[in-house]
């Protein structure tokens, strides 16, 4: 990448692999890595194009591993318990996901299970698969680019944090019907939500794509 101070250049002067186009407005730029902590922003529409962080890769891996452990652990512990008139019931996250049992509602069960368990879990596996070799300066594993693309495509469908807010709402809804207690999984899920939010802000997708390109060419 060049470091010249010229603000503008013509397309013929630049190598095609050094160009970057804003995904939102198609404005074309010659990509230059901003300083760590800095950001490259599209001057047309203000979309953030590149935002590298210091040691982002290692932090991402640490956070992603934690997320994975928490999701798996949260699955097996009771999530919430309820007590009314001497009759009690406790529910796990899998119970909540499979609560739509009758007929066509089963479809909804699959959907909820996917959104709160399988998609977040699959994303952590894919991201680990892609990032670990990059951080350790090893060549990327086979299909790393496909894996990373899938993890990005799935991003809007991972809804663990939405589910956590849903829990809070559900608690208030039944508070005068019965007594509710929190199981260990509830606290795990709360920690998980915070981690997922931090995690997504750490990842500069352009930097990852750039390193995958170098690894495989």
């Amino acid at each position: 990448m060049t470091t010249e101070t010229l603000a503008r250049t013509t397309p013929e002067e630049a190598a095609i692999e050094d160009l970057i186009a804003c995904p939102h407005c198609d404005a074309l730029y010659l990509a230059q890595m901003p300083a760590k902590g800095g950001r490259a922003v599209c001057s047309h529409c203000h979309t953030v194009l590149i935002a590298p962080r210091t040691k982002a890769g290692k932090k991402m891996i640490a956070l992603t591993l934690t997320v994975m452990i928490l999701v798996v652990a949260a699955l097996f512990f009771p999530f919430l318990d309820i007590n009314a008139g001497g009759i009690g019931n406790s529910t796990s996250i899998l119970d909540a996901a499979s609560s739509f049992r009758s007929g066509y509602m089963v479809f909804l069960s699959f959907l909820v299970a996917a959104a709160i368990i399988f998609v977040p879990l699959l994303r952590t596996v894919l991201i680990l698969y892609v990032l670990i070799p990059v951080v350790r300066d090893r060549p990327a594993l086979p299909h790393a680019r496909r894996a990373f693309r899938l993890s990005q495509e799935l991003k809007p469908w991972a809804m663990a944090e939405v589910f956590a807010i849903g829990c809070a709402v559900a608690l208030v809804k039944v508070q005068d019907l019965a007594h509710i207690g929190f199981g260990p999984a509830f606290w795990m899920f709360s920690a998980l939500v915070i981690l997922v939010l931090i995690n997504d802000n750490f990842l500069c997708t352009w930097s990852v794509w750039k390193s995958l390109e170098l690894e495989n060419d």
């Binding site: 119970d95 939405v162 019965a178």
Partner: peptide, 13 residues
Amino acid sequence: VFVVAILSSLVQL
């Protein structure tokens, strides 16, 4: 939708 899922699995007394 999640609220409904949680409630209908939890409140089965």
